Simulated scan of single mutants.
Amino acid sequence: MLTNRRDVQIQWGDCDPANIVYYPRYFAMFDDSTSSLFEAAGCSKRDIINVYGLVGIPMVDTRAKFYVPSSYGDWITIESRIEKFNRSSFEVTHKVTKGEALAIEAFETRVLVGRDPADPARLKSTAVPAEIIEKFMRG
């Protein structure tokens, strides 16, 4: 399965008054990392909308384990991969390292959604296209 790595420098606005990253900021970084993972597979969020006719890939469950804090100016590496595809959902893991140390392990469940054919004002889960799965398997 494809793995994507990206280096991120912690910015002033990521930190709380104690100069450690305020935990919701990590979830924004993980969202960016999931987007980067899809781009690395050759299937950007724009492709999901324009090519596959979907609305997006919202997160329906998330959790994280925090081991090592980070502060303004620190560099971290976020390694992201899809661990498993289900019918309309997939499981993403993010491992954050700071230097050689494992700083965070994070987990997401996301669902592909499109417009409900019976009521276009509503969203409905959509099966993950085989072509998308194949793009991740090549990695």
Rank of each mutant, 00 (worst) to 15 (best):
N86Q: 11
Y52T: 05
E100A: 13
I49N: 03
L37C: 02
F136D: 01
K135L: 14
A127Y: 11
P117E: 10
L112N: 03
T3M: 11
N19G: 05
N86E: 14
V96Q: 06
I132K: 04
Y67P: 00
P58G: 03
D61K: 13
T93Y: 12
F66R: 05
L54T: 03
S35H: 15
S33R: 02
R63E: 13
V8T: 05
P129E: 15
A40T: 03
V51H: 10
C15F: 14
D74N: 07
R5H: 14
K98D: 06
R46Q: 14
S80D: 09
C43V: 14
K65D: 12
F90H: 04
V128C: 11
P17S: 15
F27S: 02
S33I: 04
G56R: 10
F38G: 00
G73H: 02
D16M: 13
S33K: 01
V96T: 10
M59Q: 08
K65F: 06
R5C: 09
R87H: 10
F90E: 06
Q9L: 10
V68P: 02
S35Y: 14
S80V: 07
I49M: 13
T97A: 02
I48F: 08
H94W: 04
F85H: 07
D119W: 08
K135F: 11
Y22E: 00
A127P: 03
N50S: 10
T109G: 02
A101R: 10
I57H: 01
I82M: 09
I133C: 05
T77H: 05
E83H: 07
F38I: 02
I10S: 04
V113D: 05
G139C: 09
E79I: 11
K45I: 13
P69S: 09
S70F: 05
K95E: 12
Y22L: 00
M59R: 09
E39D: 07
G99N: 11
I76C: 02
R6H: 08
I76D: 07
M59W: 01
Y72I: 09
S80P: 01
L123N: 05
D47F: 12
P120L: 13
G53H: 14
P58E: 07
M59E: 10
I104W: 02
L123E: 04
Y26M: 00
I82S: 01
Y22V: 00
A64R: 07
V92Y: 07
T34Y: 08
E83T: 06
G139A: 05
M137W: 11
C15R: 13
E91M: 07
M137I: 05
L112M: 15
R110Y: 06
R138E: 11
M1H: 05
T3Y: 13
S44W: 15
T97G: 00
E100W: 06
E83M: 12
I49C: 03
G53T: 11
N19F: 13
Q11T: 10
A106P: 00
I57D: 01
D61F: 07
A41H: 10
H94E: 04
R5Q: 15
E39H: 12
P58M: 10
E131Q: 12
L54N: 04
Y23I: 00
R87M: 10
P129Q: 13
